[in-house]
């Protein structure tokens, strides 16, 4: 006993079912746009992938030629970088890069977290409204400016304080890099802390927790993955940074067994030497290999970030 459909229902049915009948009606046009747009997106995505793989391939292909003349053992573990004598041990630079990055993070993380806590939990709203945009602006300052500041302010200061004659070296570079990555890490951590739900804080306060206890026992652990994400982002920036480092590290191929000894890292060594090397030389290949190494390290870090973002979403 099916009652006849009401007029409204019939109309709804027809409007769902059909295209308007015209060959190039609104519906057909929308479908066309949809398809075109999708095609453009796919092309762009493919293009980006091609670029990435070309870069990897280009750097890797030239870099790998190093191993025709230098054993991997020598390249990775020898401290003798004397291209004039055909000695291409990159250990100094690899070690320098890792040491510099580690030192930078060691200084930058605690300070950034304190800044973030201060911003998110302590600062009155009006001050926060000023500080956040200022930090965001700092992120965009060209690194060469930080290098200048390091050269003209920091290095003389280090000379005075430590009594050394040079002042260039890991410490100076780490301080400059710290100042550079501080805004990035602290702002992203700040966002992570701000995003911690109020209900966790309420629960802690309702149990008699002080603000200090609540911040360090509840809020920071709850924001942990976001803060780690901020740290890795800052670290990726520190590893690849060239200009600011070149200006304060001293650019001497000697192992940095002291914080105040001029040394060199992967980026600074590449940029200092690449202009002077013959195109088809082992020296050139070795520099490419160092670049390739940097590239792989940064890619790994980005993969790590992606991985953590996904984990963050799950929680």
């Amino acid at each position: 006993m099916s009652a006849p459909a009401s007029a409204a229902a019939t109309e709804l049915g027809t409007s769902l079912k059909t295209s308007s009948g015209k060959t190039f009606g609104r519906r057909a046009r929308l479908a066309f746009y949809n398809r075109t747009f999708k095609a453009i997106c796919v092309v762009c995505a493919v293009f980006v992938c091609i670029i990435l793989f070309s870069i990897l391939f280009l750097m890797g292909r030239t870099g790998i030629l190093t191993f025709e003349y230098v054993s991997p053992m020598e390249f990775f573990f020898s401290t003798e970088w004397v291209p004039e004598n055909e000695q291409y041990g990159a250990f100094i630079f690899i070690f320098g890069t890792f040491a510099l990055t580690a030192l930078t993070m060691l200084i930058a993380m605690p300070i950034s977290i304190l800044i973030a806590v201060f911003l998110a939990e302590v600062t009155p709203p009006w001050l926060r409204a000023v500080l956040r945009p200022v930090l965001d602006l700092l992120v965009g300052i060209p690194s060469v400016v930080y290098g200048f500041l390091g050269m003209t302010l920091l290095i003389p200061l280090l000379r005075d304080v430590t009594g050394t004659t040079m002042g260039d070296g890991l410490l100076a570079a780490a301080i400059v890099l710290t100042i550079m990555v501080l805004p990035t890490i602290s702002r992203i951590s700040d966002d992570a802390i701000t995003a911690v739900p109020k209900k966790y804080r309420d629960a802690s306060y309702a149990l008699g927790g002080t603000r200090f206890q609540t911040t360090f026992k509840v809020v920071l652990p709850a924001a942990r993955s976001g803060i780690m994400y901020a740290g890795i982002l800052g670290m990726a920036r520190a590893i690849g940074e060239t200009m600011a480092v070149v200006m304060v590290i001293g650019n001497t191929p000697q192992l940095a067994n002291s914080l105040l000894k001029p040394t060199s890292v992967l980026t600074s060594n590449i940029v200092m030497q690449i202009a002077n090397v013959p195109f088809d030389s082992t020296w050139n290949y070795a520099l490419y290999l160092m670049g390739f190494l940097l590239l792989v390290i940064s890619l790994l870090m980005i993969v790590l970030i992606r991985f953590m973002q996904r984990k963050g979403v799950q929680r």
């Binding site: 739900p197 209900k199 966790y200 309420d202 629960a203 802690s204 309702a206 509840v218 652990p221 709850a222 929680r315």
Partner: peptide, 10 residues
């Protein structure tokens, strides 16, 4: 105090 929404810590 016990709140309206259960709010155990993570």
């Amino acid at each position: 105090m016990v709140f309206q929404q259960p709010n155990p810590f993570p």
